[in-house]
Simulated scan of single mutants.
Amino acid sequence: MYTNQRINALGNRKYLAFSLVFLPFVFWLSWYTYSGNSWTPSLPFSCRFQYAIEKREEIPEERKYVDHFRKDGSYLDHLLEIRLPRMNYSQPETMNPPRRDILVMTPWFAPIVWDGTFNIDILNQQFKQRNVRIGLTVFAIKKYVVFIQLFLETAEKFFMVGHKVNYYIMTDRPKDVPNVTLAEGRKVVVLEIQSYARWQDVSMRRMEMISLFAKEQFIQEVDFLVCVDVDMRFSDHVGVEILSDIFGTLHPAFYRGQRQQFTYERRPASQAYIAYIEGDFYYAGGFFGGTVDEVYKLTNQCHNAIMTDKANSIEALWHDESHLNKYFLNHKPTKILSPEYLWDNSMGVPEVLRKRRFVAVPKNHVQIRN
């Protein structure tokens, strides 16, 4: 009897000790959750969307999408109703690729876009279902405003035809931006920015300006950003086949070259430094882009690296292009554009280049920069 009493008493003490430890934890957990704290930092996007709806919270990197979702799930039902229209096109053949003369896929499974590797009709239907909005950014500082007219006129003919486009013209001469007739759903947005004495500074400050406007304006207005040089003209189709999370373009002077030949920044003191044993491709600074948030990350990081170099009295060999290449070394692009998308006709027309979609306008570089 005495033994049973001791056992019961011991059990009661264990129960009491358990209650004193566990119950306060339960109450704290309930309070923490009720107070709106998140326990889901590692959930996949789909779950995080639903969690945001139920908690009536906005997840910063996805805030522009959350408002499309309704708690009753009707938005998901709407998605199920969307389908591609019936289309007639050649069947893709597993054992007969459309191009055998060029690399069409990187080791990290990023496609390289060449003529003949995509069906634009299928892609247009996919992107139109998503109702995407594309922003095209250019810098027209000082004398470079003379290129805007031809740039916009050719863009209206060849760039993202049939899709919504905002042309973001960043310039120190807003009154000199010409009026160009635009198709429905497309508009010019003039953004006045500061000029700099040296063309090198103008080039490097592009990263800063794009990152600032991406955070303050672009994120509210478009889904993708395409960042290009203004002293160019569109001469053939450039469409949604280029769009991806983050994309770069093979430099026309180096697309055949070996990494040791690339004009990377080779000085270890620079934030843009790339060793001779490193590097995948050499990317052109005149054509890159992606989703607004990914372009923000790219331009913000490049700008910070440029400012670090400046504080250390060093300037990368090819300025913002050098930092772009360092970024793409560490953050692989999800799609790469072939030199079709950035070409200079003074380099001739190699057989591999079936299209010249975006080409340089002949000019006197010294005169226009000064």
Rank of each mutant, 00 (worst) to 15 (best):
N124S: 12
P92G: 02
R99T: 01
D121L: 13
T117E: 08
Q91I: 13
T106M: 06
I122E: 09
P92F: 02
M95T: 15
T94F: 06
V104K: 01
T117G: 07
P107R: 04
W108F: 02
V113H: 00
A110C: 05
P98E: 03
D115Q: 12
R99L: 04
Q125C: 12
N131M: 15
M95W: 14
Q129S: 15
E93K: 08
G135M: 10
R100N: 07
F109Y: 09
I134L: 11
I122D: 01
N124E: 12
V104I: 06
Q91T: 13
W108A: 06
E93T: 14
G116T: 06
R130G: 08
V104N: 02
I120M: 09
I134V: 15
P92I: 03
N131H: 15
N131S: 15
F109R: 05
G135A: 13
P107H: 08
D101T: 00
R100F: 13
V113P: 00
L103Q: 03
T137E: 07
I112Q: 01
D115I: 05
N124W: 01
P97I: 05
R99P: 03
V113N: 02
I102T: 03
V113L: 00
G135H: 09
K128E: 11
G116C: 02
T117D: 07
I102S: 07
L103T: 03
M95Y: 14
R100A: 05
Q129V: 15
R100G: 02
L103K: 12
A110Q: 00
R99M: 05
P97Q: 05
P98Y: 01
P111A: 02
R133N: 07
I112H: 01
R100C: 10
R100S: 06
R130P: 06
W114I: 04
R99Q: 05
I112D: 03
L123K: 02
Q91W: 12
T117M: 09
W114Y: 10
Q125R: 14
F127Q: 11
R100H: 06
V132W: 04
N131C: 15
D121C: 09
D101P: 03
N124I: 14
F118G: 03
K128W: 12
P107M: 07
Q125D: 09
A110G: 07
P98Q: 01
M105K: 00
M105W: 08
A110D: 01
I122A: 10
I122M: 15
D121K: 15
L103I: 09
Q91M: 13
D101K: 10
N131V: 14
V113M: 05
F118E: 00
Q126E: 14
R130N: 13
A110F: 01
Q125G: 12
P107W: 08
G116I: 05
P107Q: 10
D115N: 13
N131D: 11
W114Q: 09
F127R: 00
T106Q: 08
I120S: 09
